[in-house]
Design a protein around this nucleic acid. Structure first.
Lengths: 127, 127
DNA sequence: CGGAATCCTGCCGGATACTG
DNA sequence: CAGTATCCGGCAGGATTCCG
């Protein structure tokens, strides 16, 4: 009977751990959320700024993603009483707590891309 | 001009970092992948075992998710030449490299759940 | 400028039936 | 046991239009 137990750490406790991971995944899921958070990590942005920087997103999606991020407290929305009305979005302190996760994911993803490339090269070379 | 720069670390580098994060998200996305990985973190499992343990998943989805996980090298699939044929799925060493990510996500998710609960309590209490 | 409303589409994922 | 094939509904997400 082999027990891997995830290296030598505890395995994922099915009931609560897994649910927590799914919660995080749900919050981060959506085609643009990561990108938006990334953009806001550089500083505050207005709606229009995000439209330009995210590039490819539509106003509906941007609005929706922004709302979901705000509901979860990851970003803040501030309406400026200027003339045509401007709105500033900013990453909250709470939103910054995602940094460890995002960093791990970026790290793993880059590593993975290298691995995949190596795998393909090997197959092509030997095939 | 306020630059938050994500605490005092570098912000997410748009081109490569973001793409890497999305790669990771894609690999982990899907309603059952996390759960399957969690199950396999306890040890090897057969198809039928996973059907029972994941609970709620159908054979089509399980098969599909398993294939995707295998393609990415996260799990291994071993056919045993027994009588009615049995297949063993196991988390690979590479799959275990996801542990830091999953752990961070579990941690954050649990923290978040507590925060959300506190927020609701506060609103209910003061409203 | 910053959205909301509407319409339309693909694919994600579920149920069921069939195969080897 | 371990899948595959097929059909089907729902929702994520895109394009367009309209509003304050």
């Amino acid at each position: 009977m082999k027990k891997k137990v995830f290296i030598d750490q505890k395995p994922l406790q099915c009931p609560s751990q897994l649910r927590a991971i799914h919660d995080t995944m749900d919050i981060l899921s959506g085609k643009w959320k990561i990108t938006i958070i990334g953009c806001l990590s550089f500083g505050d942005k207005r709606f229009m700024d995000l439209m330009r920087e995210v590039k490819g997103i539509g106003s509906k999606m941007l609005s929706k993603e922004l709302q979901e991020l705000e509901i979860n407290g990851l970003i803040s929305r501030t309406v400026q009483p200027t003339k045509p009305v401007t709105v500033e979005y900013a990453l909250t302190t709470y939103g910054e707590t995602l940094r460890p996760i995002l960093w791990e994911m970026a790290d793993w993803g880059q590593h993975h891309r290298i691995k995949v490339k190596a795998t393909f090269s090997g197959e092509v070379g030997s095939g």
